[in-house]
């Protein structure tokens, strides 16, 4: 029953995709020669003017270009012409560094907040004020203090992914069932061992949920951050191709951002499933 449902869902998905591509193709195709014009003018203007082709690339253009990119993902022809793989690699590396830094800070600090009501209350006003700040608002400050655009981008990733992890860790740790803590207490389990053998496994699903939210936000923010700092990365690529008026490349970049974001989310989802326990 479930497999047939899955099969039917796949069929509907494919039909929807085909319909979307079909409509896209029809809407952007050439409509034939329009009027007479001097060949020189026509050459200057390209297909848009001569064949009535839309300025928006069609699915075939995008497909051809995508194939070109996929065949050579790692070429490097100087600062403004690098392969899609290199650009994505830069973005993923920045997200990875910033995110890792956030994990190192947020999880121990979240533990502390979750375990100590005093620290929880003391830090609460700071967290409440810092949390709603758009990560990009930190960018000028980061550029001024760090004086390195690449590290500034990493800092922005750090600051945006730290909050969901921090709050989820604190919540997960504070919400560990009292009876499990009591089991550890009656067994004279020390604080450190208790943290690792009872609190961490009990809070792990909540912590991982926070980490999953964070990776999503980090991937959203990196594109915007790289548009600002420039140089490398998929965000910079999008902006650069916009400046080149290559809508085809912009569309490809959008698709790639979506796919990488999905993969990152799936990886975290898998980790979450690994630590989730049935009750």
């Amino acid at each position: 029953m479930t497999s047939s449902l899955r099969f039917r869902a796949a069929v509907v998905s494919i039909v929807l995709l085909a319909a979307f591509l079909g409509i896209w193709h029809l809407a952007t195709r050439s409509t034939g020669a329009v009027g007479n014009m001097s060949p020189e003018y026509a050459k200057l203007m390209g297909l848009t003017a001569t064949q009535g082709k839309s300025a928006m690339p069609g699915p075939l253009d995008v497909g051809a270009k995508l194939w070109e990119h996929l065949r050579q993902p790692f070429y490097d022809n100087g600062p403004n012409d690098k392969g899609l793989g290199i650009q994505l690699g830069y973005s993923i590396a920045r997200v990875g560094f910033g995110y890792l830094l956030a994990v190192i800070v947020a999880i121990p600090l979240g533990f502390l907040i979750g375990m100590s009501p005093l620290i929880s209350r003391a830090l609460d006003p700071f967290i409440q004020v810092l949390k709603p700040i758009s990560p990009l608002a930190w960018m000028p400050l980061a550029l001024y203090t760090i004086k390195d655009s690449s590290i500034s981008a990493i800092f922005v990733i750090f600051i945006c992914s730290v909050w969901p992890m921090l709050l989820n860790t604190a919540f997960g740790v504070a919400a560990v069932r009292k009876e499990w803590i009591n089991v550890a207490r009656t067994l004279e389990v020390g604080t450190v061992r208790r943290a690792f053998t009872v609190i961490l496994p009990a809070a792990a699903p909540t912590i991982l949920t926070g980490m999953r939210i964070s990776i999503g936000i980090a991937w959203l923010v990196i594109v915007a951050a790289e548009m600002l700092v420039g140089g490398t990365g998929i965000g910079y690529f999008v902006w650069n191709e916009w400046n080149n008026l290559s809508i085809t490349n912009v569309i490809i970049a959008i698709l790639m951002i979506g796919i990488v974001g999905m993969l990152l989310d799936q990886i975290l989802a898998r980790f979450t499933r690994m630590v989730t326990f049935p009750e």
Binding site: R177, E179, W180, N182, V183, R185, T186, L187, E188, T197, V198, P201, A202, V275, F277, P278, E279
Partner: peptide, 29 residues
């Protein structure tokens, strides 16, 4: 003074650690 391994508690709600197996729960103690 405080809890002790000399005094074992059987909880009303059994209070087993759900991420451990039966053997794991006993081995933890």
């Amino acid at each position: 003074e405080g809890t002790s391994l000399d005094r074992a508690v059987i909880f009303q709600s059994h209070a087993l650690l759900p991420w451990r197996t039966v053997l794991g729960n006993v081995a933890y103690a």
